[in-house]
Design a protein around this nucleic acid. Structure first.
Length: 533
RNA sequence: GCGCCUGUAGUUCAAUGGAUAGAACGUUGGCCUCCGAAGCCAAAGAUUACUGGUUCGAGUCCAGUCAGGCGCACCA
């Protein structure tokens, strides 16, 4: 990535200046290169000179000038120009030779383009959805599900070994509630057609037993097919009951007791989570002798670490945010670093239909299921819409709009660019043009729209890196839109098929690379890339 | 009452502490003898809820105020 090359250049320059005694010794901060918005600011810019003012004790403009005076760019041809501007930015202009060469690389790498090694094959566990086996998935589950799936894709692309996992809470109170609901007694809470269907099929009157059977059926006939429909493939479906069966719950209880991190009060056993970063202590074993949901979660956490995951990512709905510190406290109590436990809180999804908000409640049976949503707007649109928003922002989903809009939808905009490319390729094929990418041909790509498109293409690995680092998955749909837009502009300015055979070939290479990168981006998002629309 | 999240254009949302706050939809007006008009171009539309603070520089960080959402169980 060019960011690395530029950062390297700067780091070397600073070290050289320190060696010469021009700069004092200091620890060089992370050199950030940002993509500049305005053309006159070059392709990349850095604020490094502004950041080290205090350490260097010179004015930033002078610092920047000193830094670039050490660059030896005439040897490496990847930069055209480097300039210093007020108040101390350094702007970099990438050379067209570099861009042309990179285009060749993209074609060579194909679907591997964008793959990084920053993950160093570390194992990461990404747990998402994990909805209780008590009913269909909600829109909130959909948001978390798509986000988790795509995050897993990105991490994989970045070189991590990723396991996608679904935790099935098949023990405890909610299973009994499900039992009551299926039986239809006074303690019933879940409603809906699926409950009625279960009632027909299950004849037992033992609440516990009915609940367990129902949960199994829901898992098999509702949740797993739904997940498949969402385009998600889990590596593990982990049952809570396994933690009891294998005595892992007991294990963590013993461990915490031994560490004297528990105490008895009012007949219950409490975990001193306040000793870590929780705001109150938590019950592990209730007065009636039953363990809480939290207790098995602690055991589950340990189980994950014991399976060798270097990092655990949990994706939860906003209604679980109060749970974050509890789990991190548990991690610390067990001797793991809380930094290895990353919890992403997805804000809730609000649904609007006919301009009115539809209040969603699983228990009231008034919710719109994810299944219905996907049927209405299609998987591609559903995935894209959910991915577009940052996890922290509340998501208002206007169902009518998503449906009606389908032709002007951002996802179609991107797919259209792909289909357009495919259409050109079909035409060229019938004209029997031979396809051969040579560096001589690529040198013909000089038009600002051509170079602009290549610049957009080489951002892809950067997108992967940034996203693998901060989990901001909405960067992908954003990038896909930018890329499609840049392509459409190129299409406006430059004809691919022309009398000039060499130029045609060069542009053919360019659109082939574009096609590949759009495909790679859509693949990461789990969205289809149609050759015709 | 306490905690977490959010407040940006008419609407839905972007914007690793950087330069002139961007898109999409909607509105208005242009562009198909030419590779797909599901496209392109242009215009209008923002005191980034409010008040202070931190600094070379704040939509972003900090404090407070206001508004909305979500939590605050020996439920999950």
């Amino acid at each position: 990535m060019i960011r690395y090359r530029i950062a390297n250049l700067i780091e070397k320059a600073i070290k050289e200046l320190q060696k010469e005694g021009v700069f004092l010794e200091f620890k060089i901060p992370e050199i950030k290169l940002e993509q500049s918005g305005a053309k006159e600011h070059g392709d990349y810019a850095t604020n490094i000179a502004l950041l080290v003012v205090k350490e260097v004790k010179k004015n930033p403009l002078e610092i920047a000038k000193l830094i670039i005076s050490k660059f030896k760019i005439q040897n490496s041809k990847f930069l055209d120009k480097v300039e210093v501007v007020e108040p101390g930015f350094i702007n970099f202009f990438i050379s067209k030779e570099y861009l042309q060469a990179r285009l060749g690389e993209i074609l060579k790498q194909g679907e591997k383009f964008g793959a990084l090694k920053i993950g160093k094959e570390q194992k990461i566990n990404v747990e998402f959805i994990s909805a209780n086996p008590t009913g269909p998935l909600t829109l909130g589950n959909g948001r978390g599900g798509f986000c988790g799936d795509v995050l897993a894709n990105v991490l994989e692309k970045a070189g991590f070994k990723v396991a996608r996992e679904y935790y099935i809470n098949n023990v405890g109170e909610q299973i009994r509630k499900l039992g009551h609901s299926v039986i239809g007694d006074s303690e019933a809470v879940y409603k809906g057609d699926y409950i009625l269907n279960l009632r027909k099929g299950i004849k037992s009157v033992d609440v516990e037993k009915v609940g367990k059977i129902a949960a199994k059926i829901i898992l098999k006939e509702i949740l797993k097919p739904m997940v498949k429909k969402m385009g998600i493939k889990y590596d593990f479906w982990f049952e809570e009951s396994k933690l009891y069966k294998d005595r892992e719950v007991e294990g963590v209880l013993d461990f915490l007791k031994k560490k004297e991190l528990v105490y008895s009060k009012e007949g219950a056993l409490w975990f001193r989570s306040t000793k870590f970063l929780d705001d109150k202590d938590r019950v592990l074993v209730k007065e009636d002798g039953e363990t809480t949901y939290f207790t098995s979660d602690v055991a589950y956490l340990k189980n994950k670490f014991k399976r060798g995951f270097a990092r655990l990512i949990y994706i939860w709905g906003a209604d679980h945010h109060g749970y974050v510190n509890r789990l991190k406290a548990a991690a610390e109590a067990l001797g793991y670093q809380k930094e290895k436990v990353n919890i992403i809180i997805m804000q809730l999804v609000r649904l609007f239909r006919g301009g009115k908000e539809v209040r969603m409640s699983k228990r009231a049976g008034t919710y719109v299921t994810l299944n219905e949503l996907i049927d209405e707007v299609g998987l591609d649109v559903a995935r894209f819409f959910f991915l577009m928003r940052g996890a922290g922002s509340h998501l208002n989903f206007d169902l009518d709009l998503a449906k009606e809009q389908s032709e002007k939808n951002p996802v179609y905009y991107i797919q259209y660019a792909y289909a357009r490319i495919c259409s050109i390729l079909r035409k060229l094929k019938t004209k029997n043009e031979k396809r051969k990418t040579t560096i001589q041909n690529l040198k013909l790509l000089e038009h600002p729209s051509e170079l602009g498109l290549i610049k957009q293409l080489i951002r892809f690995p950067e997108i992967i890196e940034d996203t693998a680092r901060d989990y901001q998955v909405q960067r992908l749909p954003q990038y896909a839109g930018d890329l499609a837009n840049t392509f459409h502009q190129f299409y406006r300015d430059c004809r691919v098929m022309s009398e000039d055979k060499n130029l045609t070939q060069a542009r053919l290479s360019l659109i082939l690379a574009t096609k590949q990168v759009i495909k790679n981006t859509l693949d990461l998002m789990g969205i289809s890339a149609p050759e015709k629309m």
